[in-house]
Simulated assay, not measured.
Amino acid sequence: MSMKTCAVVVTYNRLELLKECLAALLNQSASVAHVVVVNNNSDDGTTEYLNQLNDDRLIIHNSTKNLGGAGGFSFGLDKAVSSTDDDYFWLMDDDTIVDQYCNQALLDKAKKLNDQFGFLAANVRWTDGTPSNVPIPTADWPMRITEGLVEISVSTFVAFFVSRANVVKVGLPLAEFFIWQDDVEYCLRVGKLGPSYLVDQAIAVHKSASKPGTFLVQNDVLARVPRYYYQFRNNMYITRHYHGGKAVRKMVRVNLIDTIRVFIKAKNHRFKRASTEFRGTIKGLTFEPKVKFVNKN
């Protein structure tokens, strides 16, 4: 019996990229059974475009508010599990363009592993062909490299592939994260169920405006500074829950020192940039969202 994949795409005001993302998904060599699209209250024509699409594989939700990336993935994955009987769920942002054979490569490795894995990740490149969204390898990363598998501990929601059984066991991504680090936390949670792997033949291109990791609160454009609050808050939550008290104390110390550095060295709006890091760090010490579980097995 063939196994079925349901993609989950979260989009916000990137209509042209969304069109490219959906075209790539709907033209896979191993067809996807469904695509759940969560539209985070876009105002660039995305709603109108989605409403005129005529494909039975599409399950579209036009949200009346911006749920953030984390909220979108949590809602979308819940919708995917409860609305389909598909075996695997494939999470990605609207700027993820998967290769035509990407789903087939992931399905082949899932079968080879007999579903005994936490999650699978695509081999992601940026627009210039260089590696992007590079996963964190484990100490045993070379063990199955001759099989096209690199063991990893953390990846991102850029062509992230997980089984229905594992979603049912661990629940949904934490919607309260809003943006950033929700994928890291989910990887750590799902990864407890078994080894996870990057699949070398599962190619995807991440068409982000800038290469991930190239901007920091100190030098990013002012309009993006407020979102760093979520990064520092969510990182602190992850450290508390997965790395222990010693790591928490170290992170607090490092972040407070970095707050001073940002205040001194930022080229403009120094107080806003530094206070964003400080407030996020402190809030992360008590931030405690609860894991929600899917509505249907």
Rank of each mutant, 00 (worst) to 15 (best):
S132Q: 06
L25A: 00
A247Q: 13
V248N: 06
T276H: 10
R144L: 14
I97C: 07
R164G: 07
N51K: 15
R249Y: 10
E147W: 05
V221H: 07
K111Y: 06
F160P: 08
Y101T: 14
V8L: 04
N234F: 03
D86N: 15
T64P: 10
T156C: 13
A24P: 07
Q218L: 13
W141H: 14
K79W: 14
V170M: 06
E151T: 06
Q100L: 07
D200W: 07
D99G: 09
I97K: 06
D87A: 08
A105I: 01
L25R: 02
A165V: 04
V38Q: 01
A33P: 03
L256F: 12
L198R: 04
E176L: 06
L174K: 09
W90E: 05
A122P: 04
V81G: 02
F160T: 02
R227P: 09
K79S: 09
D108G: 03
K283Y: 01
K296N: 11
R57C: 06
N255P: 04
H34A: 02
V221Y: 07
N166P: 02
N40V: 01
Q201D: 12
Q100H: 14
V167E: 05
R233I: 00
D140W: 11
R261C: 05
L193C: 03
L107V: 03
R57L: 04
A209G: 10
D95Q: 05
R224L: 08
Y12W: 07
G194Y: 14
F287S: 11
G244K: 00
N62C: 12
T130R: 15
P212K: 01
N297E: 12
L120T: 03
K19V: 08
L222Q: 12
R164F: 09
I282V: 13
R144P: 05
S196F: 02
R261N: 11
D55T: 06
T239G: 07
Y101H: 15
A80G: 13
E185D: 14
G148N: 13
A202P: 13
G129E: 09
I136A: 15
A159C: 10
G69L: 13
I257D: 12
V199N: 03
R57F: 07
T239Y: 04
L216P: 00
L26C: 05
H241F: 01
T146D: 13
N123A: 11
R253S: 13
A247K: 10
V170F: 07
E151A: 15
L107I: 07
R164W: 04
T64K: 15
F160A: 11
E151R: 14
P226N: 04
S74K: 15
K283S: 11
F215K: 12
E20F: 05
H243F: 15
V9K: 00
L285C: 01
E288R: 07
A223L: 06
A33Q: 12
S31G: 10
N268C: 12
